[in-house]
Design a protein around this nucleic acid. Structure first.
Lengths: 175, 175
DNA sequence: AGAGTGAGTTTCTTCTGGGAACTCACTCCG
DNA sequence: CGGAGTGAGTTCCCAGAAGAAACTCACTCT
């Protein structure tokens, strides 16, 4: 029997973006994760805050648990009730949402309408997260990074990406 | 006549994360955007590379055009054929994908299997993008930022978020 | 003349998401 | 002590979205 996969399944794909999207690649999961990151930690609280259907919330929470970005701890037994919190893997993933939020603040809502801002504990200031290069420490501005084949690149499997790499190298050589 | 929305529509939501997800909040759109960012710029090339259905690719490209993160320029007329490229708004959005990819490289595939790495033009090194505070310039590590109400926060509209903020402030005050 | 390419469009079927109601094990209130 | 409330799901139905595959159409190349 062939199992027909309806929702896109990226779990076999040799691509970091696709594999991460297997965790947060739908409209609701990132919002659920954001709520948990902010400290809205219970089923009904998340449901009230987001207004998504209870069925979908159940599915998303289970998926987050499976991917080990979220864990739950009982705050009462019988009936069992839980607080959902981020794991370390989840706290790291929340950084992606921080950058996502910064994009929305800047390009869609406008900084003056941002409903949530983050305070950087180390310096105490309100932080606008920016993306930096871990080598030189400088901010990487849009267009200042170019894609190159990594250690796991398989040109046979991705001929279109291969061609794109070649075109980029030609452009660079022409300078 | 009531317009029943099937796919979640976040376009009225006062939330930067949700509004950004209105653009890239599904499994395929981020991958399409990534392809365009890398330089895979034509319909068939993206289709071959990703293996999604042509119908969905058409829809996603149109959505990206509407959101003005992607534009297209004809490289021939009659029949009209196009190259899809990022707008400035799109180049900025691609930075979010850079961070998303970095997460996948680190937590899912492993850095040694990364198929694509980015070279930071300014310093010439292979860059692992990290999230930094624009105020102090230091890296913001997971857990080093705490959420606080921003200028556009409406406590009436989001009581659960309000409560979460209160709990956080209590925790901070207790230190 | 016939095959190939590029970019869609159409059809058909299966699956997923939203809405709303139902369940169940308590707790709280008068 | 009876009834309302809360928290976390589960179940059902229906409409829309995704996938596969075939079709279109205007060329170009051999």
């Amino acid at each position: 029997m062939i199992h027909v996969m309806q929702r896109a399944d990226f779990s076999e794909m040799q691509c970091s973006v696709a594999r991460t999207l297997d965790i947060i690649g739908d409209p609701w999961t990132p919002l659920v994760l954001r709520d948990i990151a902010i400290g809205v930690s219970r089923f009904d609280a998340i449901h009230r805050n987001l207004g998504l259907s209870r069925k979908v919330l159940t599915q998303r929470l289970n998926s987050l648990l499976e991917h080990e970005v979220v864990e739950r701890t009982a705050y009462q037994d019988n009936p069992p009730r839980f607080d959902y919190t981020l794991t370390e893997k989840g706290t790291d993933l929340a950084m992606v949402l921080l950058v996502l939020q910064a994009y929305g603040d800047k390009h869609i809502l406008g900084r003056d309408n941002a409903p949530v801002v983050w305070q950087h504990l180390n310096c105490g200031n309100q932080a606008n997260p920016v993306v930096c290069c871990d080598q030189c420490g400088e901010q990487v501005r849009p267009g200042e990074a170019i894609p190159t084949p990594g250690p796991g690149f398989d040109g046979e499997a991705f001929p279109e990406i291969s061609k794109a790499f070649d075109r980029i190298q030609q452009l660079l050589a022409a300078l």
